[in-house]
Design a protein around this nucleic acid. Structure first.
Lengths: 169, 169
DNA sequence: TTAAATATGTGCGTAGCGCACATATCTGGT
DNA sequence: ACCAGATATGTGCGCTACGCACATATTTAA
């Protein structure tokens, strides 16, 4: 039964995301892509509406309304971007605090599932997942999408490649 | 950095669920818990509204409206249950067909991520995930929730325990 | 200098969901 | 046999999250 592994990973992924999303909703009081948006905006201070849209995989208007919600929650500010068309999204102090809670909640949720494994088993699993991710054929944008909830405080050297579509040479 | 593994599993789980949900939406034209509902209803012919509610983690009214959508899409029929209060949910032939497409789409989505691993690596990963799931402290209802998208054609002997809260002895 | 591209905002509608309430059926104690 | 509570379903109403089509402002390129 060669599909057994796919089914197992599917079930585990569902369990993991259920727990992450539940925690995220408790922290920010909102669901959908809103928690991910808060994390993505926090990666740097140059985020624009349009980059965010592509990372989250939402429509343009959906992204504008999402940012509206973050602004009305006093978690994000719209500032002038370099380009006169762009809006530069910045976290407020409150937004940065919520983002940290969000990241901690996510790590905690996953850890609670992982800690039934021994240290050696966790290491083995980490190696396998690292390889699995490292061998995917992902563009830079794909990587941002997959990593839209990632904790940049613990994820040094992301395994995901960023060279999809580039010439092999 | 001991949280590295949690972050990696979180990222992988997000990537897996993104792909599963995208495929599911293409198959049934609906999102949220609707695809899972179709799969759960197909597990047996005794599913009721209330059991479904608990498995999906939705409110009562949300579940009623979800079933309304499945009925209006001609995928599910409401029949009389044994108990005069209950509604017995049954898949129509069209519903059973959609369910099969859904399960195939899910397995295919996960497999496309997995197939960068060697056969030996996949086997190793399967063993680890199997152990991880087998050691969770889950009730029977927890198990149905985690397995609400599982493919019962490929998942013989589910590793999840069903004895949370029972006395040790 | 002007058309196309880029980036954002808005009117409007829909899907998916929860809360509070109403109704029907079953169960258990007297 | 009867009636209060438990169980199961359905409904009115509102809200969140989102997409489509359109409008507007700025930059870029011919």
């Amino acid at each position: 039964m060669e599909n057994g592994i796919a089914n197992l990973l599917g079930a585990l992924s569902l369990a993991v995301m259920d727990r992450i999303e539940q925690g995220a909703r408790e922290v920010v009081g909102r669901g959908g892509e809103t928690p991910a948006a808060l994390i993505v905006i926090g990666y740097g201070q140059g985020m624009t509406n349009d980059k965010l849209r592509r990372i989250l995989g939402l429509s343009h208007s959906g992204t504008v309304r999402l940012v509206d919600r973050l602004v009305s929650d006093r978690l994000v500010e719209r500032r002038a971007g370099k380009d006169g068309r762009e809006v530069a999204l910045h976290l407020t102090p409150s937004g940065a605090a919520s983002r940290n809670e969000l990241l901690a909640s996510r790590i905690s949720a996953v850890t609670s599932l992982l800690d039934v494994l021994s240290s050696a088993e966790r290491k083995q699993l980490a190696t396998l997942i690292h390889e699995l991710l490292a061998r995917q054929d992902t563009s830079e944008m794909d990587r941002f999408t997959i990593c839209r909830m990632c904790d940049d405080r613990v994820c040094t050297n992301c395994p995901l490649p960023t060279n999809k579509g580039q010439h092999a040479r």
